[in-house]
Every structure is written in structure tokens, then in C-alpha cells.
Amino acid sequence: MSGISRRKFLKSTVVAGGSAAAAMSSTKSAFAMKEFEGYPDSMGVLVDLTRCIGCRTCEAACNKEHNLPEPAVPFDNFSVFDQVFHGGKQKRRPTEKAYTVVNRYETKAQGAPVYRKIQCNHCSEPACLTSCFVNAYKKTKEGAVIYNADVCVGCRMCMVACPFGVPAYSYDSALHPEIIKCNFCYDKRLKNGQPPACVEACPQDALTFGHRKTLVKIAHERIRSNHKKYVDYVYGEKEVGGTSWMYLSSVPFDQVGFNTTLQKHPILDNTKSFLGIVPMVLGIWPAMFLGFHLLAKGGKGEKEDKSKNKVEVHGE
């Protein structure tokens, strides 16, 4: 099967799955879940947009840390801020070549431009994780949401599920599916108690690394002690059940590209309807995806062990 026809086929499978999920929405209530406050030791990053100067140093640091491909233009080239896609509405997004990007916003609320770094927000209850059939994602106790390319079948359900449009898909090898996203520098840094490369590099301390629960306090205290400067809101404290990366801003969040309509409880609630069909498809889909998986991994000639939870850092 050629890569293209396989992709098309997968795409139609996902669509079919989605409509099946919609059809089964009546099973929703059966999966009601208790409030979950996240992991007590979860780390996080507070991104303070009032401090960010759009220097792109974080992008360069991430690129270096993870040996990512050469960028199209140098990291000190700010013409990238003018890039827009999809008829001028869409600014840059993380890609398979960049785990993080910084965008510039001209706002009504403020004369000077506002810059916003985006990357995976490392949700407390990640929709990418819950949407994944083969458990390619894992939320670590340190708060990182990491991904294991060895078990990924390339269905790209996570890309659809993520409320922040984060996971990117590598088309480099059609037979070696790989989702690419910020991993909170888990392998090289976070799990050893070290801050992410982007945080360490930021000249402005626009990125504050710490325990998530401390960051929440810091965020509210920054607002309280400088209420004229900040919008009284911590983005990510509650969104989709809370995220490890949170934001402070001096302008209304919807003016700087944030989705302010997201629900305050985990996306899991929405996919419950989807999870409802899991028992039904349990017998069919795994076999189907195992088939894809073996196809995809055919070149490697052996079946990976899911339980080893190996994390693959792209580009290593």
C-alpha cells in the first residue's frame, strides 16, 4: 500500500470512528468521573506575556536541545511573525520541525505588540492521551505528557483531540508514523529535576518553571500586586481540567490567540461518548490497528513491546 493511499484510508477511518462516537453519545453518563486535581508533584511553566519580548531565544534553545531540523530562517529573523496561513487567520503553530513557536499580536487593548510562545500545554488530563487507542501517550508524575513513537500507529486521533492544536505529524517517512510535539524536555531534563531548555534560555524570565501548585499562587500574586497591568485570569488554571503550562496576559486572552471558549473540565468528558464505543470496537479496532502497525513497522521486522514505555525523542 502506498503511503498516500494508506493515509487517506486512515483518515476515512478516523472520520468513521468520529461519527460512530457521535452516534453513541447516549452512553455518556455511564462514565461520569470524579474531579481530578492532577498530580501533586506536577511541575509546570508560567508564561507571562507581559514579559515576553518576542526574541525567539526559546525557539532556538528548543531546536538545539532536541537537534531539530534547520529552520527556514535564522532564529533572530523576526519576519516569521508576519507569516499567516489559512486566509490570514492562522498564525504559526508548532510543527514537526519546531516543538514551540512564538507569535506576535497587535491588539486593540495595547499599543505595543504582545508575543505569545506556544507549545504543548501538558494538560492534567490530556485529550491526546485519552484519545489514543494504543496508549502511545503517558502523563508522567512530573507533569509531562510524553509520546512513544514505537507504539504509535499513526492514526492521528490525538491531533484531532488536542484542544490546542499541538501534535504535529511527521511526513518524513510514510512507513514510520511519528507524532511530534513538545515533551517538556522530559528525557534530558525534567525527569532529572532540571528546567526545560526554553525556560533556562529565556532572557526575560517570561517563563517561570516550578511546581504547578506554586505557579498558580505566583500567578495570582502577580495579578494581585499589579492588577492594573494584568488581566485577572490565569489561562490554563482551569481550562480542560487544568494544564501544566499556564499563561498571564495584559490583554484579553482572546485578542492574543487563546481559545477562551474551552470548557473548564477535562475533554475526557466529551470523549466519554467516544469511550463508550470502546467495548464495542475493542475486538475489532486493535486488530485493525495492529495490522496498520505491523504494516508501518514492517521494515523493522519485529513487534515492539508496549509496556516498556520507551520515550522517543525526535532527532536524537
Partner: peptide, 19 residues
């Protein structure tokens, strides 16, 4: 080198930043 600037500037490749 860190900023891939000056003599370390990218030599080509795709136009960046999106897919």
C-alpha cells in the same frame, strides 16, 4: 551558532513554520 545566524544561517530547505 545557537541562533543559526551569521555564518551559521540556514542554507536552504523548506519555507518554514507550518503544516
Amino acid at each position: 551558532r545557537f541562533y543559526r545566524s551569521g555564518k551559521y544561517a540556514p542554507t536552504g530547505g523548506e519555507s518554514g513554520g507550518h503544516h
